[in-house]
Nucleic acid binder design. Sequence first.
DNA 1: GCTCGGTTTAGACTGCCGGTCTAACCGTTC
DNA 2: GAACGGTTAGACCGGCAGTCTAAACCGAGC
Lengths: 199, 199
Amino acid sequence: MSRQVPPDIAGRLPAALHLFLDQGLDGTRVDAIVAATGIPKATLYYHFDSKEAIFAFLLRELLDELAEAVDAAKRGRGTARERLVAVIEAIVGAMAANPTSCLVLLSNLSRAGRMPEIAGSVQAAFHAPVEELLVEGSRDGSLRATGPATASAVFGAVVLVSLHHLIMTGDIPVRATVDSVGSLLLHGLATGAAEGTDG
Amino acid sequence: MSRQVPPDIAGRLPAALHLFLDQGLDGTRVDAIVAATGIPKATLYYHFDSKEAIFAFLLRELLDELAEAVDAAKRGRGTARERLVAVIEAIVGAMAANPTSCLVLLSNLSRAGRMPEIAGSVQAAFHAPVEELLVEGSRDGSLRATGPATASAVFGAVVLVSLHHLIMTGDIPVRATVDSVGSLLLHGLATGAAEGTDG
DNA sequence: GCTCGGTTTAGACTGCCGGTCTAACCGTTC
DNA sequence: GAACGGTTAGACCGGCAGTCTAAACCGAGC
């Protein structure tokens, strides 16, 4: 299919996001999407192959926007360390700006991960840039050298903190979140006190 | 229903885990569970209300085991900081010991989150202990004082790193993983170099 | 104002699959 | 041997994703 989705359809689709959020992709009936968006079923299936394609379309928009913001932050000036903080800010900022889509994405990551197109975008938008910055940082001396798995840790910390705020209060205090997760990731939790088991 | 599941049934059910892993809960057909476990459909529905209940049963076993390991680590001796590392080790160790169940849990977190029983267990097994240790740590001076969202960051970092290893190589090098994520969380990524924007 | 392409739509229909129901069957206990 | 809890096959039901048909609709070009 991959026909181009006309603007008025694309504009109405986001009304279905909260359905996906509440019921998940499989739990959301197509009739409910019809009711929520006002787009008749036959029209929906004229433009999309499946319910899943509708879902993917909505996430694509988010991921494209996000990838761009992250990429811009990554290509900015400053040390790798400074740009890493900028990337974190871009991620948190994007989540704050699109809370519903982000919640849908994250709370359906499993399902999304099984859609190659989406999985690839997530990888490209989140992991790859962070991983590259970590490598750069160990070259320019602004960050400790670490293995590739560390990018996952950074990703996990940033995303879960944002998710925590979204779930608890419904919105993300961007400044405070970036400061606290940034300082956690850069300086850690330890005080000057007794050294323990740490490699 | 909540009848008690007889041992031979319980023993055969894990054979369905890889189905849930590959196809997700909704994507797994009951007939496939029947084929994988050798338990006839009627018997399955004699013991369980639904496919979802089977799924929940499998995760329960994992979560109970995990909650116990984490709790033991948390109640050990030493500073809060040392016990935090022990808790991280318990989590990583449990994931390494039950890779399939863990993958199923994490890659269906969305779905699991909509099952109150499971969501509660995850909260109790992971978040609560970490959160408490962070508070203790700021009291005994072994950890910096941080907000409640920090527990989510720790959780995210630990779980995503483990997940990374599981997906990449199929198993988790426990020692190395605990060391690297432990040192990330305790000491951070920063080198002594140029101080940037960090609260 | 007619035709022609793409778009929109209603509504009936198909097929898959989760879950139910029935009724038989089996082993144990009293 | 009657009663009971568990086990099983197989027919069945209902809900829902996705298809099909065929009729409008609508703008562009002549």
